[in-house]
Design a protein around this nucleic acid. Structure first.
Lengths: 195, 195
DNA sequence: TCCACGCTGTAACGATCGTTATGTTGAGTC
DNA sequence: GACTCAACATAACGATCGTTACAGCGTGGA
């Protein structure tokens, strides 16, 4: 079973290298050789674990998706106030950026721009990101008693995307503006809470 | 001088083809041959007018930048109220999307994600887009008498980017949410006006 | 001890891409 | 009517990329 440990290690190193290189230099601009070399692996190992470069890209987005959801989960677990729970998406984003490094904008939207092919295996995770964002915010908006949950969700998603775009534009600290916008949206939609 | 007309025509056709293909399928995913073929031109003509593919990409972003500015100019010329002039960035965006086709998000931010190289000739137009957005909104915020112009600009840019991201996420109609957010920001920063 | 297995290193393949060169056409000028 | 010049079509080059094949190494289990 130690062989399994070794296997997982190589796969993990490849994923970690792919994550850094894809996010830093773009997917199309990153060659398979660069990923293999940074991971200290061999091309054969990559193709033994993933279905080509497309499969690696899909796994890269899947891993990032799970990390993002885990980060949001952790932040959400410590928020009790309904309004705080709605605004937790921004706190989670700040934490994610600090821990995982998200200084170049949204990896999902960047991948969506690079992979317009509708049948690409990575497309599922691009849609999963949008779905998670909308569904979870919708539940939180309902729990907070918003008058028009769908409108509030649309506005909060917009603030979330705008914040990530600000990172891509190398804005120093977009969080204050994001929080003001989000708080305004929550207040406008008559949510009861302490904030 | 008719030779010049013919020249301009070939250059224009190449730019139009590059604009459609780069925006629809991504820059890296679009080959030079595809652009040449769609323009009904020859590779030699492309390299006679542009400094390789990088030069074509730079010209593509420059053209898009000028079109966007012209669209905003036109909308701004018909707005008299200071608040309407601030919100004109969203009206211009809706008009630009309708006329030029911007259904896949922001071409500038997408290009920024694909071209991380700091010395790429197209990088200048990516920065020009950010500069235009910030400077013009700052002037409009000052003219409208905002209490904290820089904060208001940061929030409006965030709404603008969030709206373009909504297009990239295939949201049906993000404009209502965008207008509510922008109006809330303007109101919060105590701008005098009719809106 | 020998086998099985996962991994590494190197090399090679076919395809594609950006770029350049060559020959030809066609319209405008003297 | 010959000259000029931009632009056309085609082909080819070198480089790079994704992918696969092959040989050798080290470790755990019978």
């Amino acid at each position: 079973m130690a062989a399994h440990r070794t296997t997982a290690s190589a796969r993990e190193r490849l994923l970690e290298a792919a994550d850094q290189l894809f996010y830093a230099h773009g997917i199309a601009a990153t060659g398979v050789d660069a990923v293999v070399q940074r991971a200290g692996a061999s091309p054969a190992t990559l193709y033994a674990h993933f279905a080509g470069k497309d499969g690696l890209v899909a796994a890269y987005l899947e891993r990032r998706h799970h990390r993002w959801r885990a980060t949001w989960d952790a932040v959400l677990a410590e928020a009790a106030d309904p309004v705080d729970r709605l605004l937790s998406v921004l706190d989670a984003l700040a934490l994610f950026r600090q821990r995982e490094g998200a200084t170049r904008g949204c990896a999902v939207l960047a991948a969506a721009a690079e992979l317009p092919a509708a049948d690409h295996p990575a497309r599922a995770w691009i849609e999963a990101d949008t779905t998670l964002l909308h569904h979870r915010l919708h539940e939180l908006a309902l729990a907070a008693g918003a008058d028009d949950p769908r409108a509030l969700v649309a506005e909060l998603v917009m603030v979330y995307d705008g914040t990530l775009a600000a990172y891509a534009r190398a804005v120093a600290d977009p969080m204050p503006a994001a929080r003001e916008l989000a708080r305004g949206a929550v207040r406008r939609h008559a949510v009861t809470g302490s904030a």
